[in-house]
């Protein structure tokens, strides 16, 4: 059977890369005593896949993985066994059984919600102030780096939502052309964050073929704000989004359950 699990990669371990997180989860599965399934072949490995790789340096509040088990296990037992086997900084929040025929999670991802905490008061003020002008542009250029090439692309259509939670100086939500549905779902309202380090919240396209990384958004906004370089910022991915039958963005775990 397949089990979908929502987990948190906490800020403490945000510098751990995706492959290392993957191996840590695999070892957690081995510690848990759960009946995990192994691949066939010369070097058998645990059957596990992640909806989306999270960059080194980024924390994740609701990351999602898909584990294949050799025999049926209830979601409660799965959650309980795993949380006893995982370090507190890498814990599971929810587990949901997934139909065997459900598509691979990574094919269902449409977007992600990010919290970007900008370092430096002056830089943060200018970047937040530049949002309306940036969004008013028909085109917003940013560099996309892939394994093989570096190219400039237009990220304006990839910005699905952009605002500043809990900050009075923010532009009104109406000024952003975001799909309002995006804001109804993100799980974490990020309340109670220290006001000294202003936050930028963004809903950005994330699919297997096209995506806008937080760094690309920050690059464009920094340019708009007239900053010489992109200020340091800390990324927390708050949620992964899929879509419902009507094409509205909904949390990925719901989209996977509906599919």
């Amino acid at each position: 059977m397949r089990m979908m699990a929502v987990f948190e990669k906490s800020e403490r371990i945000r510098h751990i890369g995706h492959l290392d997180i993957q191996r840590s989860v695999q070892r957690g599965l081995r510690r848990s005593g759960l009946p995990v399934a192994y691949s066939n072949g010369f070097h058998p490995h645990i059957l596990i896949s992640f909806a989306s790789a999270l960059s080194t340096g980024a924390a994740g509040k609701r990351e999602i993985m898909d584990v294949t088990l050799a025999e049926p296990v209830t979601a409660d037992r799965f959650l309980d066994a795993m949380n006893r086997a995982m370090p507190p900084v890498l814990r599971l929040l929810e587990a949901h059984p997934l139909a065997d025929r459900a598509p691979a999670l990574m094919t269902l991802v449409r977007a992600a919600v990010y919290d970007l905490r900008i370092d430096g008061e002056e830089e943060a003020r200018r970047i937040l102030g530049a949002i309306p002008a940036a969004l008013a542009r028909r085109e917003l250029r940013a560099m996309r780096k892939t394994k093989t090439k570096l190219e400039e692309i237009d990220i304006r259509p990839l910005i699905l939502g952009l605002n500043i939670p809990a900050a009075p100086a923010a532009p009104a939500a109406g000024e952003t052309p975001a799909a309002p549905a995006a804001w109804e779902n993100p799980a974490d309202p990020a309340a109670g964050d220290p006001p000294a380090a202003p936050h930028l919240r963004a809903v950005l396209t994330l699919t297997e073929t096209t995506s806008c990384k937080p760094g690309m958004l920050m690059e464009a906004l920094s340019r708009e704000a007239g900053l010489a370089e992109v200020p340091r910022f800390v990324t927390t991915r708050l949620a992964l989004l899929g879509e419902d039958a009507a094409g509205r963005l909904i949390p990925l775990e719901k989209a996977a359950a509906e599919s």
Partner: peptide, 21 residues
Amino acid sequence: FERALDRVQKAPRYTGGEMNT
């Protein structure tokens, strides 16, 4: 300390939080 970590190679050397610590 977190800011320092953003600027170094191999930050996982310094993060801690490993299983069974």
